[in-house]
Design a protein around this nucleic acid. Structure first.
Lengths: 309, 309
DNA sequence: ATTGTGCATTTGTCATGGACATTATTGAGT
DNA sequence: ACTCAATAATGTCCATGACAAATGCACAAT
């Protein structure tokens, strides 16, 4: 489909079509074409129908560029540098700041691909700290470090995937193990389309479960309309949305406002996560949560307000 | 961003731009534009810069069309029918075949949005049947039913999301609870970009864990190159990929072949899932698994072949 | 009755180049 | 130092044409 299996080519590795490159780099087709037009890179070969065929080195350089752009560089400044220069740029980023030793140990294990002991270390931290502290300290710190290291190219994608899977396992396990069914308020938890990070969501669920709220977790990427429909179906009091730093602040705020317009006034909307960390003023009718403590206060407030009846 | 908050419009609901519609319907921008050109639907309003503004009814009809096309209808035949006709088409699909009573009970609970009891029913089934039978019977049947019902529009997206989350919780919990660390072979588990369904992957992981294999689970959507890099890093013997029916058979086979070309001969590649169910002949060097029993045999075979050393 | 083959039609993806929205950067004015 | 406007950069959208890939159909062969 997107490569010429069996066809003998002058350059055997020029075999990625534009759709494959979009998938593997996260750069849209439009962006790929406009870069070629403006900056002259990438300059893929063409097949007999004039369709682009990217080579493996091009694809790798594009992935490097993507990383650098995500960490703040501008395309025009770096797109025509050599791969070795780009690699150097990546590694010259500021190293991680002071990380507590327990975190350091876990990171070591992850980088050594020592799956079993990494899992054990997580589990032990959870046991030692309890769910609330585990989430608000250990997982938060790990997330932060992994995000940094990913931008700096120190961890591979698959390391990050593995990390995510294991933290999910631990958190989901801990959530199930919470005593009691959870009572008021009922909170619907999800993210909007485009936001794929599940860990933030699970962290919120863990804290809410620990505080005895009833969670309805819908996973990631629920379209706004479906959230609207889910609210009456599950009779929830609060909709909580998570936005990682992968989304822009404006996109997050627009999504929140759109949802606010669709939900009844009695339903609260809470938003939190990296994308909203620097937001000063919340849109009308939205509660911004900048920390897990914020969330616990908000929960407390809700319960006080709805106690008398 | 994608809606005109505050701006007063003749039709207040014409506020979705093409990117928002792409996200919420899964239809590509190219497809949306070409439908408009060829069939005259959708016919969005334009903003002052001639950019498309889709209305809510259009968006809803597009989602309906998407459902029908996924279940086998052709765009040209149905695109100009009315919403009520389309709804009728959906509901006139073949009803679910004979479902065992326990499954029926769970479905009832899910449709009634009775989160707690649904969870309990799953947990009880797991206890009663053990992990292997729970996966190969109950979860398989539920998946099948939910997939059907989703196509037929009998369950909402949020129901499906909730289902997925709960089954994930149960399976991940069960996997962690497996005794022992797992020994040879080491199996890397993931899916290719575009394949977002996690449950199939977790089912495989559960079965492998129950059989005592060591799993390295990377979650969904790992680019092929990253799989290639992960194989030596985690020293895996086998790469197992899952393809749900949401992917086309040809895309699945192309992905498998591409991966085969990148991995050393000593590393086995296993593929399974709905997309490959009807595939007769596996590509060279790929092992197709059509059932969980197939997988257990394959595991057995691998262990026999690698026993002497 | 089922399976295979070739042809016609349908449908989605890709290409081009221009326009402009959005986001960052720069520079001037409190 | 901070805010705000002007400027530059970057990405998204548009129209239209072309064609690859998927599907359906008619007919032959098992």
């Amino acid at each position: 489909m997107h490569n010429n299996l069996g066809a003998i080519e002058a350059t055997a590795d020029a075999c990625y079509n534009i759709a494959a490159v979009e998938r593997d780099t996260g750069l849209s087709k439009d962006t790929l074409r406009v870069w070629e037009r403006r900056y002259g890179f990438p300059k893929p070969l063409r097949d007999r129908h004039d369709e682009r065929l990217y080579s493996l080195p091009e694809l790798e350089k594009l992935r490097l560029l993507r990383l650098l752009i995500d960490s703040g560089h501008r395309p025009g400044k770096i797109i025509n540098r050599s791969v070795s220069e780009l690699t150097q740029l990546l590694s010259s980023r500021a190293p991680a700041q002071n990380t507590p030793p327990e975190i350091q140990v876990m990171i070591e294990l992850l980088l050594r691909h020592d799956v079993e002991n990494f899992r054990n270390a997580l589990q032990q931290a959870l046991m030692k700290q309890g769910l609330l502290r585990f989430v608000s300290e250990t997982v938060t710190a790990l997330n932060h470090w992994i995000g940094e290291a990913w931008l700096a190219g120190r961890v591979a994608i698959f390391d990050e995937h593995l990390y995510s899977e294991h933290v999910q396992n631990i958190l989901r396990n801990a959530i199930i193990a919470q005593p009691g069914r959870g009572s008021a308020p009922r909170v619907l938890l999800t993210s909007l389309p485009g936001e794929k990070h599940r860990i933030g969501l699970l962290m919120v669920e863990a804290v809410l479960a620990a505080e005895g709220a009833a969670c309805v977790a819908l996973g990631t990427e629920t379209p706004v309309i479906d959230i609207k429909n889910a609210v009456p179906a599950y009779e929830v009091d609060i909709v909580a949305l998570s936005f990682s730093s992968a989304v822009t602040q404006s996109a997050a705020l627009a999504g929140l406002s759109e949802l606010r317009g669709l939900l009844p006034d009695g339903t609260e909307i809470w938003g939190g996560g990296g994308a909203l960390a620097r937001t000063r003023k919340a849109p009308e009718g939205i509660l911004l949560l900048r920390s897990f403590d914020d969330m616990r206060y908000a929960l407390e407030r809700w319960r006080v307000e709805h106690a008398r009846r």
